Amino acid sequence: TETYETTDETEARKIAEELKRRGLTFRIERHGTTIRIESD
Rank of each mutant, 00 (worst) to 15 (best):
R22K: 07
A12H: 02
S39T: 15
T10N: 15
L19I: 03
T6F: 07
D8S: 13
E29W: 13
R22F: 03
I37H: 00
I28L: 05
R13S: 09
T6N: 01
T10A: 14
T7H: 08
A16W: 09
K20R: 14
R30L: 12
F26Y: 11
T6A: 04
T3N: 06
T10W: 12
E18K: 07
I37C: 01
E17H: 08
G32W: 02
L24N: 04
A16V: 15
R27W: 11
H31L: 11
K20Y: 10
S39R: 07
A16Y: 07
R22C: 08
K20I: 13
I15Q: 02
T10S: 12
I37R: 00
T6V: 10
E2Q: 12
R13F: 12
R22A: 05
E11F: 07
S39E: 05
R13L: 14
R22T: 02
T33R: 08
D8I: 04
A16D: 01
R30A: 05
R21D: 05
G32F: 03
T6E: 02
R21P: 00
G23Y: 02
T3C: 14
D40I: 15
R36E: 01
E5M: 08
E29Y: 15
E9M: 08
T6Y: 03
E38A: 08
T25D: 09
F26I: 10
T3R: 13
G32D: 04
K14N: 10
T33N: 13
T10I: 11
T33S: 12
E29M: 12
R27L: 07
E38V: 15
G32Q: 03
A12R: 01
E38P: 00
R21F: 06
I35A: 00
T1G: 12
H31P: 01
E29C: 12
R36F: 07
G23M: 03
E29G: 05
T34M: 13
K20M: 13
T34H: 07
I15K: 04
E29N: 07
T1P: 12
E5G: 01
T1F: 14
A16L: 14
A12C: 11
R13A: 13
R13Q: 13
R22L: 07
R13W: 13
E17L: 12
R27M: 05
R21Y: 05
I37F: 04
K14F: 09
F26C: 07
T7Y: 06
D8K: 03
R36M: 05
L24M: 08
A12F: 05
T10M: 12
L19P: 00
T7W: 05
T25L: 09
S39F: 14
K14Y: 10
E5L: 11
D8E: 05
E5V: 13
K14Q: 12
T3H: 09
T33F: 10
K20V: 11
R30V: 13
G23R: 03
E9Q: 06
E11H: 07
R27K: 13
I28E: 05
G32R: 02
D8G: 02
T1D: 05
R30G: 03
D8A: 02
K20W: 11
R21M: 08
E9I: 10
R30T: 10
R13D: 09
G32A: 03
E18S: 11
E5S: 07
A12I: 04
G23A: 02
T3L: 13
D40P: 15
S39M: 13
T7L: 06
E9T: 05
T34I: 14
R22G: 02
S39K: 06
D40W: 15
T1Y: 13
G32T: 02
I15D: 00
I28W: 08
E18Y: 11
D40Q: 13
T1L: 12
L24G: 02
E11G: 02
E2V: 14
T34A: 05
R30W: 14
E11P: 00
T10P: 03
T33K: 12
I28S: 03
E18Q: 09
R22P: 01
S39C: 15
E9F: 08
T6I: 06
T25M: 09
D40K: 11
T7K: 08
E17V: 07
S39V: 15
T1E: 07
R27V: 09
A12N: 00
I15F: 08
S39Y: 15
T1H: 12
L24S: 04
K20L: 12
T33D: 14
R30M: 12
E9W: 14
E5D: 05
E38I: 15
K14I: 10
H31S: 08
E5I: 14
E18V: 06
T33H: 09
T3F: 14
T10K: 11
H31M: 10
G32H: 04
E2R: 12
E17A: 12
K14T: 08
F26A: 05
A12E: 01
I15G: 00
T25P: 07
R27P: 02
Y4C: 07
E18W: 15
T3A: 08
R21K: 11
I37A: 00
T3W: 15
H31Q: 09
T25A: 11
L19Y: 04
T33W: 07
T10G: 13
E5Q: 07
T3D: 03
T3M: 12
T34K: 08
E5N: 05
T25G: 10
K14M: 12
T6M: 04
R21Q: 08
T34F: 08
E2P: 05
D8H: 04
T25I: 09
T33E: 11
G32V: 01
F26E: 02
T33Y: 08
D8Q: 03
E9S: 05
G23D: 03
E11D: 05
Y4K: 01
R30Q: 09
T1V: 13
R22Q: 06
I35M: 02
A12P: 00
K14V: 09
R13T: 10
K20P: 00
L19G: 00
R27C: 13
S39D: 02
H31C: 10
G23V: 01
R22W: 04
E18C: 13
I37E: 00
E9K: 06
R13N: 11
F26G: 03
T7R: 06
T34V: 14
E2M: 14
E29F: 15
R13P: 01
E17S: 10
E17G: 08
K14E: 10
I15V: 05
R21C: 09
E9P: 14
A12D: 00
H31G: 03
A16T: 14
E38C: 12
R21E: 07
Y4Q: 01
T3S: 10
T34E: 03
E18A: 10
L19H: 01
E29Q: 09
I35L: 04
T7F: 06
I35N: 00
E11N: 04
K14W: 10
D40V: 14
R21A: 10
K14G: 06
I28Y: 05
R30F: 13
I28R: 02
F26V: 13
I37T: 01
Y4L: 02
T33P: 09
A16I: 15
E29T: 15
E17I: 08
T3Q: 07
E9D: 06
T34Y: 08
E9G: 04
G32Y: 02
K20F: 09
A12K: 01
A12Y: 05
E38D: 05
Y4V: 03
R36T: 07
I37Q: 00
H31R: 09
T10F: 11
T25F: 08
E29I: 15
G32K: 03
K20D: 06
R30P: 02
R36Y: 09
E18T: 07
S39G: 05
E17T: 09
T7A: 06
R36N: 02
T34S: 06
D8M: 04
D40F: 15
A16R: 05
E11I: 12
T1C: 09
G23E: 03
L19K: 01
T25V: 08
E18H: 09
T34N: 06
E29A: 07
L24T: 04
K14S: 09
T3E: 05
T10Y: 10
T7E: 13
L24H: 08
G23N: 05
G23S: 02
E38N: 07
T34C: 11
S39H: 08
E29L: 13
R22Y: 03
F26H: 04
I37L: 04
F26D: 02
E17R: 11
T33A: 13
Y4R: 02
G32E: 05
T7M: 08
Y4N: 01
L19F: 09
E18D: 13
Y4D: 01
L24E: 05
E18P: 00
E29H: 11
